[in-house]
Simulated scan of single mutants.
Amino acid sequence: MAAGRTAPGRLAPLAEEDTLSLGERAYRRLRESIVQGRLPAGRKISERSIAGELGISAQPVREALRRLEQDGMVVTLPRRGTVVAEMGPAQLGELGRIRAALEGVACALAAERMDAESLAAIAAVLKRMKSGTDAADHDTIDEANEEFHALIHRATGNLFLIRSLASLRAYDNLGRHRAVGSTPRDLPKALVEHRGIVAALKKRDPALAEARMRHHILRSLVTNGVLPAPERKPRRP
């Protein structure tokens, strides 16, 4: 069955031309299905049925489920087996704060290590982001945003940090899918913040890059309803 015509609650078979390992492909498909809500919280996952839906053997599914359990996206319960983990607002908020901290660290390292070619690439991504913002084109903005962060992550050269952020971004997507999300009025804020981050990277200022990235992530989490808005301090008389 084609991916576009997959029945609700079922997974589309994996494409044969995909060059990734079966375990990696199964992991990505299952994680995407959890984030998109096609596999809801509390849903029991059967290795055999998932393998049948994906058109593969049970071993890659078992491998994928082990990784998802390490990510905290599925849990093994007594007498129930493997189920999709419950992920409430408080947990998503905590993970969002962790991601903000790690994204800040990544941006600081990128400010020190990013080469001229990568800086040119991120400037080109920023132009695409502006075009998407001007047109209120969320697809273009989302694609540019993913590439923007990926360029910063790669520039760190730190595999542990890259993998940790990749796992946390799945929770970020999960939070966005459960929230109201950005309105057209919010889009220019993100563009201004991304411009500020690029300026800090070009200045080779790790402290400024880290601060601006952390602010950007935390502000986006508030906008998407994952974190509550900070209380405003009363003005001094």
Rank of each mutant, 00 (worst) to 15 (best):
M1W: 02
A2I: 01
A3S: 09
A7F: 06
L14Y: 02
D18T: 11
L20P: 05
L22A: 14
E24A: 10
R29H: 03
A41H: 05
A41R: 08
R43F: 09
I45W: 15
E47L: 15
E53I: 00
L54Y: 01
I56D: 04
S57M: 06
S57K: 08
R62S: 08
E63N: 05
L65D: 09
L65W: 07
R67N: 03
E69N: 04
G72T: 02
M73G: 00
V74C: 10
R80G: 05
R80M: 04
V83Q: 02
A85D: 05
M87R: 01
G88R: 06
A100T: 03
A101H: 14
A101L: 15
E103F: 09
G104D: 14
A106E: 03
A106D: 00
A108T: 13
L109E: 14
A110N: 13
M114Q: 09
M114A: 05
A116H: 09
E117N: 14
S118W: 00
A121H: 07
A135D: 11
A136F: 14
H138C: 01
D139H: 11
T140H: 03
T140L: 14
E143M: 13
E146S: 03
E146C: 07
H149I: 06
A150W: 10
R154P: 04
T156P: 05
G157V: 02
I162N: 11
R163N: 12
D172N: 13
N173P: 01
G175P: 06
R178P: 01
G181Q: 03
T183I: 05
D186N: 05
L187F: 11
P188Y: 02
L191P: 08
E193D: 14
P206N: 01
E210Y: 00
H216D: 02
R219N: 12
V222K: 09
T223L: 12
N224A: 03
P228Y: 06
P234F: 12
